[in-house]
């Protein structure tokens, strides 16, 4: 327990000490929030109705999908995990603790966004706080899972950028933040439903803001929960201690199994 606590505290501090992580955990999400808050107020008033859940989800995507993979790849390349292995640090701790500390940073960011959006931009507060918190944790869970899975399965830092952007950029454009999903062409709607952010925004709309989403939200709940469990399970299964060791338990391509629930959702949901 003491080891876990030490590891957790160290990783939490790293999220602030490391300039790249500080940028991705705090500066970029909060800077983007301030910018979008002032910009969208005049050009997209609909966005201001859901600015709180949108900015919370965007912050989560930035810190998890963009922030989690690269340190994992660099640590593996620099032989840090070899040091961990010979000193008895379990692989599970390496895979689980960084996402947990990242979620802690996200909670801090959400605590900054919620009251300031309410006071600065007249953003409506969630009508059901319990659901808001649970959905926040759920999207953080699957995003963190995908983040570590990208880090574990990627062969290099360059590959992590590719895979991370493949999730992050479409999420920003068709992930339900700026353009309501029902206004998208059918094909983009289908692609959008492949993204965890779309499900998260739909869940926030339905459970926290009492808005209609056009399908049973339980499906989104199931997709995010199963996707998160698969992501973490595969990340632990595919974890490799060092780049030189070619013997690994499964092919990195197994990582694609994590998106099966999202693909099923895209096929069957309207």
């Amino acid at each position: 327990m003491k080891a876990f606590k030490n590891h957790f505290v160290f990783e939490f501090k790293t999220g602030i000490r490391d300039k790249n992580l500080l940028l991705l955990n705090y500066l970029f999400p909060l800077g983007l929030y301030i910018m979008l808050g002032f910009l969208m107020k005049n050009i997209n008033p609909d966005f201001m109705e859901i600015i709180i859940p949108s900015m919370v989800v965007i912050s989560i995507l930035i810190s998890t999908i963009l922030g989690l993979p690269d340190p994992l790849v660099k640590s593996r390349e620099a032989g840090i995990f070899r040091s961990y292995k010979i000193n008895g640090v379990p692989a599970t701790s390496i895979v689980v603790i960084p996402p947990l500390t990242t979620i802690m940073h996200m909670i801090v960011v959400a605590i900054i966004i919620i009251p300031t959006a309410f006071t600065m931009f007249d953003a409506p507060l969630p009508q059901n706080w319990l659901y808001f918190i649970l959905i926040f944790l759920l999207i953080a869970f699957i995003s963190a899972g995908l983040g570590v899975l990208i880090g574990v399965a990627s062969s290099s830092s360059r590959a992590t950028i590719l895979w991370s952007q493949l999730i992050f950029l479409p999420s920003m454009i068709i992930g339900g933040f700026f353009i309501p999903q029902n206004l998208l062409p059918d094909i983009l709607k289908k692609i959008g439903i492949l993204l965890p952010s779309t499900h998260a925004i739909n869940l926030f709309r339905y459970y926290s803001y009492n808005q209609s989403i056009g399908y049973n939200p339980v499906w989104s709940l199931v997709i995010l929960i199963v996707g998160g469990i698969l992501s973490f399970g595969l990340a632990i299964y595919l974890f490799n201690w060092d780049n030189q060791n070619k013997t690994r338990r499964g092919h990195p391509a197994f990582a694609f199994f994590a998106i099966i629930p999202l693909i099923i959702g895209a096929i069957f949901l309207p």
Partner: peptide, 10 residues
């Protein structure tokens, strides 16, 4: 180890 490392910020 001959080649190993620790996290930069540790």
């Amino acid at each position: 180890l001959q080649t190993s490392g620790l996290p930069d910020s540790m």
